[in-house]
Simulated scan of single mutants.
Amino acid sequence: MEWIYKEIIKVGKLLFSEGLVSARSGNISRAFMERLYITRTGSSLGALRKEDIIELPLKETHILDKRASVELSVHKKIIIETERRAVVHAHPVYTLLVSYEKEEVVPVDSEGREILGSVPVLELEKPSASDELAERASSSLKYLPVVIVRGHGVFAAADELYKAYSFISTLEQSCKILFLRGS
């Protein structure tokens, strides 16, 4: 499964180079067959190594679960419920700023509108590593490519990692436009 490690490492570098994650934020997962490959807790997505990616059973608990991202249960629920195979979680600055002012983000730029449509902003009591987050994010991502969690970040799901990353990148560009124009 060397290709999965390479794919995760490449997307981690893209997220970091665009400023969509900071040195120790965000996480990435990729399902293949009944296995889940997910970034290790505390890993730096911009400098990932193969050792920073944990291989786990998709539908069972494992002794290595505690080494995986704290968002492991959220990633698993999204993959199982949506039947998509790739999840990216990031903390894009402009998207977070816009999420404090809106219940949904509707891009004004043509690319954002065409690719994303409108993106809901979820308000959660516990916005990180919670059952509530897993349930609400997976429910939204059944029908949408990306969802924003107010004060926490975004989750995107797709059939491949690059596409999930591209949804987040597009959303951040759209939110930057919204923020800079004051809308």
Results as ranks from 00 to 15, higher is better:
G12Q: 14
M33E: 14
F16H: 15
S17Q: 10
L64I: 02
E123H: 00
K76Q: 10
P145D: 11
T170I: 08
P120V: 01
K163C: 06
H75M: 09
R113W: 14
I168R: 00
I9S: 09
S166L: 11
P127E: 14
G151M: 05
S25E: 11
S130P: 12
G12E: 14
L178W: 00
V74G: 11
Y5H: 13
G182R: 04
G42D: 06
F155N: 01
K77H: 05
F155H: 03
L180I: 03
K10L: 11
L45N: 01
Y162M: 15
L178P: 00
E135N: 08
L72S: 06
P57L: 08
S110R: 15
T82F: 02
R84K: 15
F155T: 00
R49P: 00
L133S: 01
L141N: 06
E101L: 11
I28G: 09
R30N: 14
S140Q: 06
Y143V: 08
T61W: 11
A68S: 14
K13W: 09
E34C: 03
S183W: 07
M33I: 07
K66V: 13
V87E: 09
G26N: 09
V88P: 02
V88C: 03
E51P: 12
T95F: 02
E114T: 12
T39W: 05
L45F: 00
S140R: 09
S69I: 06
P57S: 06
D131Y: 14
L116D: 09
G19L: 05
Y165A: 05
Y37F: 15
S118F: 14
E60D: 11
R24Q: 05
E123C: 01
L15M: 08
K142C: 04
G12C: 13
S166G: 04
A90H: 00
S43D: 04
R24H: 07
I38S: 00
Y37N: 10
D131K: 15
D109W: 13
V106A: 13
S69R: 10
T170H: 03
Y100R: 06
R84L: 11
V87K: 12
V93E: 11
S138I: 05
I53F: 00
G151N: 07
S17K: 10
L116A: 08
L72K: 06
P107T: 07
E172L: 07
S140V: 13
L56D: 11
P145W: 11
C175G: 01
R181P: 03
Y5S: 09
A31W: 02
F16W: 15
S183R: 10
V121M: 08
V98R: 03
R150W: 02
H89D: 00
L178S: 02
Y94R: 10
S118I: 12
Y165M: 07
E51Q: 14
S118G: 14
S128N: 10
I78K: 01
L124E: 04
I148D: 06
S29T: 00
S174I: 09
H75A: 09
K13Q: 14
P120D: 04
A158Y: 10
E132A: 07
I53L: 02
G182P: 07
N27M: 04
